[in-house]
Design a protein around this nucleic acid. Structure first.
Lengths: 232, 232
DNA sequence: TTGCATTATTGATATATGTCATTATCTTTG
DNA sequence: CAAAGATAATGACATATATCAATAATGCAA
């Protein structure tokens, strides 16, 4: 119990909102609750960094976080925008105990940390939990395949369309949506320079497909955007 | 027992060669052995196709297989070249029971199929096996991140360098190596047109970095190739 | 408010890469 | 062996995209 620790609602409150805690019994949830550390992050703060040891299972309970690979020449590739209640867990925990991507809060956020031993123990002792975890990992993997195709086989308009649809459907779940992501972030999500991202957004705006006001985006013609996404 | 079934050496013979069967006890191996179907594929034959139901766990015991995502405009992205003894298992089994990539033999190959129920049962009942499986999935995921960076942030020479080093180190494990992959395959591994792949190979040849004779490749200057891989 | 720093936008230009057409080489088959 | 089909290689050209430089807009601190 230190200054970062806050006993708010506890894991039981989270249970209903998350895909992977449904299989834990009350005892296990209590066990988790006692182990967890709640940490607050301000927008822009680094949560963990690629290349550092991966010591905790992390569950985001408030705010939004971007996960990204730091590549060459200070270029980043954003893998996902995580929203509550979702865990953030890299492949390192079952491999080299390292982080293979970084995570940064893009809004003020709250995350719960649980040490890996506790987490791995749950995987070993609760087969339902293990299966739920595998399911989550698998869905993420499927999404990564789509990302592969988007990034390697589509041209810029198709990639920006994918980003806009992803934000609308998966992240904000509203149509005029206000984002804290910068233009550089949008570029890092679609694997292009920020200038190119801006240009494509302008084209979409000129064609009446979207409406842009600073960081507020409204998709006016969803069908056409979907079509652009599909035709690459 | 049908015409595809052949009782050769059995799963116990495989055990030593594979990363994930080490945690199975004799009883489990026997159980697996009874369930397995051994199938022979000729080079060029499709093993399973993206979009079809995923019914089996697959273990490659002989030959080589390419796994690839079928994208837009008949363009493929090769994810990996699998060699024995390694399993080929997509994320579909814990999600939508579908194949999310295709697999094709690039050499005459032999694979063992085990129905998913048996496999999933082992995951549920043997925690060591589950952890080994998670480890394998994690390593694959880590490799995918490297692939992301290679494909999205490196220019063509860097990507071809990555492909050559991958083939030398991970697939053939010899230096002059003879491959059955076509130039189109090399292009599909590096996300470019086959003409571009050919051009880069010629440049490497002209610069004395590699030696090419048909489908035999020899890397003459490993250091420089690694450098090209790193500088993008 | 004013000034400063950051971010967004735009245009001009360079370059990486794809496409198309052609020829060469290899492989298969009758 | 010759013919045919596939694969590989090359050159000319088109174009998608990045880079660079300049300006505009925005948020923030004094």
């Amino acid at each position: 119990m230190n200054q970062y620790t806050q006993y708010t609602k506890g894991c039981s409150a989270c249970k209903d909102k998350s895909e992977i805690f449904g299989s834990l019994c009350q005892t296990e949830l209590t066990q988790l609750d006692e182990k967890r550390i709640e940490v607050h992050f301000k927008a822009g703060e680094l949560i963990f960094k690629q290349g550092t040891p991966n010591m905790h299972f992390l569950c985001l309970t408030q705010g939004k976080v971007k996960t990204y690979i730091e590549g060459y020449n200070d270029k980043n590739l954003i893998l996902s925008i995580v929203k509550p209640v979702e865990y953030i867990l890299g492949p390192g925990i079952y491999a080299d105990q390292m982080h293979h991507f970084s995570a940064m809060a893009i809004e003020d956020s709250i995350a719960c940390l649980v040490d890996l031993a506790t987490f791995k123990d749950l995987i070993r002792t609760n087969a339902d939990f293990a299966e739920d975890f595998l399911r989550k990992v698998s869905l993420q993997s499927i999404y990564n395949y789509e990302l592969f195709i988007s990034l390697t086989q589509k041209q810029m308009p198709g990639r920006i369309a994918d980003v806009l649809l992803y934000l609308k459907d998966m992240v904000y779940a509203t149509n005029p949506f206000l984002t804290t992501l910068s233009r550089q972030d949008l570029a890092d999500m679609s694997g292009m320079s920020k200038e190119s991202a801006i240009r494509i957004l302008r084209e979409f705006k000129d064609e009446g497909i979207i409406q842009v006001n600073g960081n507020e985006f409204e998709i006016l013609n969803i069908e056409q955007l979907v079509k652009i996404s599909q035709t690459g």
